[in-house]
Nucleic acid binder design. Structure first.
Lengths: 344, 344
DNA sequence: TTGTAGGCGTTATCAG
DNA sequence: CTGATAACGCCTACAA
């Protein structure tokens, strides 16, 4: 009943434990003949080394972790692929760790470091501000990726790779203003969280303020759900709320493409045409925006490029080539079918 | 530099190692006063127990794992939530393990069992047939969930929870036939894999054959991509191929809603109206189908219910209340905007 | 090239 | 209630 261990293999093969260990770990100093025999026996018996024991003993793990908050976000998929490929090229293992919305990613990281002897960590998604004291405890190199940047960059003593969420959000708002829209509703995340939603709202406000347009609180809709804020359903609900209010608007800007999809559906059901009656703009540049009808105008983040730079930066840090770095990538305003000049 | 361990805590508190261990693990036989003191010190020092060491030693882990193939699939999100909630209620930890498309889920499971001392496993997604010998090695209870069933159920000596993919696929095809469609194109997965795509294609064929309609191979489109077959982009590409061929058709049935979205876009770009010119039907019942315009006719799998039954079944098995069980749930044909009678 | 022995950080056992 | 001490399964000097 009890599990089969390295000892059993050694005994059955009539060799020492270390010989088996050498065979498993591709050590050089072992007779190829012996190795073949041991591997054969391992296959026969279906022996699997215990990872807990290995991690406990091992000093050199060649392993990095990617911690993701919001793994269902299709935005992260290509990033994961890229990071994994690069890690493989460097002969590093990669563990993918899902972090729940309510969990603290730093705490999860701390635990994982001990457990797996990590050499480096990448954080995808999550909050953009962290307790410096907690961060201090992270003794291994780490990079925050696709996480919004704040103003006070100079205070940061860690790496991040991101787009300028506030600036890009302003870019979109400016585009809508340039089209002639004056009453632009925005659908954003609850402001309690230190989330990128907050930065994107700031960008929206920046644009309006710069043109001397007063900010109308009735056009700002905050999603209260904490669990899965960027959903089509929430976009739909918020648009219904907007339609039910007496607020006038000619455009809706949502801080995520998923929200925009829900908004489009609600507008469609209300008999409004997009973009003839109302313009809709999203943010992220995920596939659905391209295949939805109308195709969504959006801000496309260079996800692949950011992922490439992220993993490169992490390895540079691991190899001591750099201490930490901040990279800000330009995002692209993609004008498609869902936006146009207001009025008819 | 070296990590802080339980020994350090013990020394600093002036107690024995086992006392610290008891404090950490909420053992009953410890002076509340001592415990408080120890926990205080742990907090101060930021000590984190090493999971590898714990897993190695522990006999009683109260931990289950959920292995997911295709974690980006929104279809799995509610299932994960439900399983986690139920596990928590039973005071079990749950680890979520992502399995790459090319990985063998059973092999991953085998490794994880050793590493984490799992009490049970749930497989979400993945192939529907496995090597019985491999399965034999899985010494802990496990349930395959939302994985298609094959004909030869009697041979199965393990649990699964699923819908009758073949039957449901036939149901959809019958519905399209009843509407009057005769030339129904189908977009499905590569047949190399032992995937549910195969079962769904069978169901399609069943329906046609039953009505004496000859199966037209030119209307069957197989996606060659192995990596992420059920994508909007693949649906789009396949629809382009279909349009470019000389095959006539009045309806398109895709084995996943994501594919249907891509198909709709391609048809739209070709100037075809849905459903006036062509009907489109999907499968799964994910949110996008509800928010897309036109709303997608689909087969909705009772994901929540299945998840509930899955976790309940697993715990019944863990607790020895049952050996194994097969559950087949009825899926629902959801008729929405994307299908109608053919012709005008 | 191979085997022996010690220890990685914890928990379980058993005596106090 | 508490403290030694022996495993857990493996890797890695070190010795052979």
């Amino acid at each position: 009943m009890s599990e089969i261990t390295i000892k059993d293999i050694a005994r059955e093969c009539g060799v020492g434990i270390s010989t088996v260990s050498r065979a498993i770990n591709n050590h050089a100093d072992i007779n190829p003949e012996t190795k073949r025999m041991v591997m054969q026996k391992i296959k026969e018996t279906g022996y699997i080394p215990n990872n807990s024991a290995r991690n406990l003993k091992r000093t050199d793990a060649r392993c990095i972790a990617v911690l993701i908050k919001g793994i269902t976000n299709p935005f992260f998929s290509p990033a994961i692929q890229i990071v994994e490929a690069q890690a493989q090229k460097k002969r590093y293992a990669m563990v993918l760790q899902h972090v729940e919305a309510y969990e603290d990613e730093i705490a999860v990281a701390l635990e994982l470091i001990k457990e797996k002897r990590l050499r480096g960590i990448i954080f995808l998604g999550g909050a953009y501000q962290h307790d410096p004291e907690q961060l201090e405890k992270l003794k291994v190199p780490f990079v925050f990726s696709t996480i919004g940047i704040t103003q006070d960059e100079e205070k940061k003593t860690y790496s991040n790779v991101a787009v300028d969420d506030r600036g890009e959000s302003r870019k979109m708002t400016d585009y809508l203003l340039d089209l002639g829209h004056k009453k632009i509703a925005i659908i954003t995340e609850s402001m309690e969280a230190q989330s990128i939603g907050k930065l994107r709202l700031e960008g929206y406000k920046d644009a309006l303020t710069a043109r001397g347009i007063e900010i109308d609180e009735r056009l700002i809709f905050e999603i209260s759900e904490k669990q899965e804020p960027y959903s089509m359903e929430n976009g739909y609900k918020m648009a219904k709320k907007l339609l039910a209010s007496d607020a006038e608007f000619t455009a809706v800007f949502t801080i995520a493409d998923f929200l925009a999809v829900g908004v489009c559906r609600a507008l469609h059901e209300a008999g409004l045409r997009i973009p003839e009656d109302v313009s809709v703009a999203g943010y992220d540049g995920i596939p659905i925006g391209e295949f939805y009808t109308p195709q969504l105008t959006t801000i496309r983040q260079p996800a692949e490029l950011m992922a490439e730079k992220t993993i490169k930066l992490l390895f540079d840090m691991i190899e001591g080539k750099t201490k930490y770095e901040h990279m800000v990538f330009p995002a692209e305003l993609v004008v498609r079918e869902s936006t146009a000049k207001p009025g008819r």
